[in-house]
Write a protein that binds this DNA or RNA. Sequence first.
DNA 1: ACATATAATACGCGCTCGCTTATTATTGTC
DNA 2: GACAATAATAAGCGAGCGCGTATTATATGT
Lengths: 159, 159
Amino acid sequence: MTERDGGRRDLAAMLSQVMRALGAVELPVLDAHGVSMWGYVVLTALRESPVRTQAALAEAIGADKTRIIGTLDELQEAGLIVRERDPADRRARLLSITEEGREVHSSTQADIQEKENRLLAMLPPDDRRGFLNAIEAMSALPREDIVAMAEPPGGGARR
Amino acid sequence: MTERDGGRRDLAAMLSQVMRALGAVELPVLDAHGVSMWGYVVLTALRESPVRTQAALAEAIGADKTRIIGTLDELQEAGLIVRERDPADRRARLLSITEEGREVHSSTQADIQEKENRLLAMLPPDDRRGFLNAIEAMSALPREDIVAMAEPPGGGARR
DNA sequence: ACATATAATACGCGCTCGCTTATTATTGTC
DNA sequence: GACAATAATAAGCGAGCGCGTATTATATGT
């Protein structure tokens, strides 16, 4: 807010820094729990709700459907997920989390959030609340919505 | 805040979503201005202050010193930066931004921040303020500090 | 003078990822 | 039944990246 033209630094630049630091904090936690990053992301998603196809899961978590197969293989092998053909459509795989997967996810998430809480504790309460509200809101939006939102208002007529 | 164990989603997960969306918003802007992502990052850094060695620049922007050489080559070729040997130590390169580099950076940043402002406008003012304060604070900290902060307080005795 | 350290540079290795293609099995439509 | 579409799967390609190595030039320390 001192010598910058726009009055603030670029969001992406700042967030990129924060993300990198968070990675340094959290990846070792995943390692310690024997879960890969994508494995953890999959567990998180399946914990919220089972899915009917791998493609749907991939889309939900922003992964490439052709690349999560290995991750699913590992999770299935480790007994953390169930992956079976849908009797109603044998092309599809029903994916859900096992009880063990739920436990692994819980303990991992507890450790992760404990560390995150420590970071959040450095912020004044109002800023913390605002920050959490903001990223909750933004992360809940589909990417296309965010892209559209960033366009000039008159840009809609270009469609 | 409904059915989650910890009461909130993982920061890293949410921020990762936001970052991806921001990428979709901002990378085309960089393209339109003929600047690569790392090129823009370098211009941003040199605009704040010149540096004395490429290694120092790389460290400041979180890049790999062996990999930014190509980027520096391009920026120098395009007349956006000055890169000359330090007369006081011929091993080192003095790096600074040119007037043209400043202009390219300014127009790029204006477009980027305009888009970011549109996104920020979706947030209630308090949340926006809190969010910006938070990421400014967090992104200003060295990564090691953040990692250390995430450790349990008693962990210090382990050193 | 010589040993050691430093800065830039080029490049290798292994890994990840976005995207694409091709194949097999299965389902849906005409 | 034929054909198009769909789901999973494997793998290729190119790009990017973290990290490491090696080389050359230069500076510093003994």
